[in-house]
Amino acid sequence: MENHKIFKMAFASVYPHYVAKAERKGRTKDEVDEIICWLTGYDLTGLRNQIDLKKDFESFFAESPSYHPNASQITGVICGYRVEEIADPLMQKIRQLDKLIDELAKGKKMEKILRT
């Protein structure tokens, strides 16, 4: 596994950007939280705990209670890379989350975002 700089970046430092991106497009912080909890298996208390403890992305995903089995259905391009073709498992998880937040900001319905 490559050691990308983002792996050691605090999830708490990026989380406000996810919320801001969604809110700029008329979506809510609650929707961002719902997406993150759906993907990672955290409940809201667990998510807040990870943010409060300033866990890095590596720990945030390693400690996630249950990564969603439908995450493999997250496809498309984010940051110039096809999500489904990213070889590094941690980078793929980070980009899957980025893709879901991007879909939220683009106005997709929550049912589609959550692959239900």
Rank of each mutant, 00 (worst) to 15 (best):
1 M>L: 09
2 E>Y: 13
5 K>R: 13
6 I>P: 04
7 F>D: 14
7 F>T: 11
12 A>P: 09
15 Y>C: 10
16 P>I: 09
18 Y>I: 07
18 Y>E: 00
18 Y>T: 02
20 A>V: 06
21 K>C: 11
22 A>Q: 05
22 A>E: 07
24 R>I: 01
25 K>S: 14
26 G>F: 10
26 G>H: 03
26 G>I: 07
27 R>S: 02
28 T>L: 09
28 T>V: 07
29 K>T: 06
31 E>L: 02
32 V>Q: 04
32 V>N: 06
33 D>C: 11
33 D>L: 01
33 D>M: 10
34 E>D: 12
35 I>M: 10
36 I>Y: 05
36 I>Q: 07
36 I>N: 00
37 C>D: 07
37 C>F: 06
38 W>T: 07
38 W>P: 00
39 L>H: 01
40 T>I: 08
43 D>A: 01
44 L>W: 14
44 L>A: 03
45 T>F: 11
48 R>N: 13
48 R>F: 09
50 Q>E: 12
50 Q>W: 13
54 K>F: 04
54 K>M: 14
56 D>Q: 08
56 D>W: 08
56 D>E: 07
57 F>Q: 04
57 F>W: 13
57 F>P: 08
59 S>C: 11
59 S>N: 13
60 F>R: 01
61 F>E: 09
61 F>M: 09
62 A>N: 13
63 E>Q: 07
63 E>P: 01
63 E>K: 04
63 E>D: 15
66 S>F: 10
69 P>G: 05
70 N>H: 11
71 A>Q: 01
72 S>V: 14
73 Q>H: 08
73 Q>E: 12
74 I>V: 14
75 T>R: 01
76 G>H: 00
77 V>Y: 02
77 V>Q: 01
79 C>R: 12
79 C>Q: 15
79 C>F: 06
81 Y>I: 05
82 R>A: 15
85 E>L: 12
85 E>D: 15
85 E>Q: 15
86 I>V: 14
87 A>N: 05
87 A>F: 10
87 A>D: 13
88 D>T: 11
88 D>I: 02
89 P>Q: 03
90 L>G: 08
90 L>P: 02
91 M>Q: 14
93 K>L: 12
93 K>Y: 10
93 K>A: 14
95 R>A: 11
95 R>T: 11
97 L>R: 12
99 K>V: 06
100 L>D: 07
101 I>A: 04
102 D>E: 12
102 D>I: 00
103 E>A: 15
104 L>P: 08
104 L>Q: 10
106 K>G: 06
106 K>R: 14
106 K>L: 15
108 K>S: 13
109 K>P: 04
110 M>I: 12
111 E>H: 07
112 K>I: 13
112 K>V: 13
112 K>Q: 12
113 I>Q: 05
115 R>M: 10
115 R>S: 12
115 R>W: 02
115 R>G: 10
116 T>R: 08
116 T>Q: 12
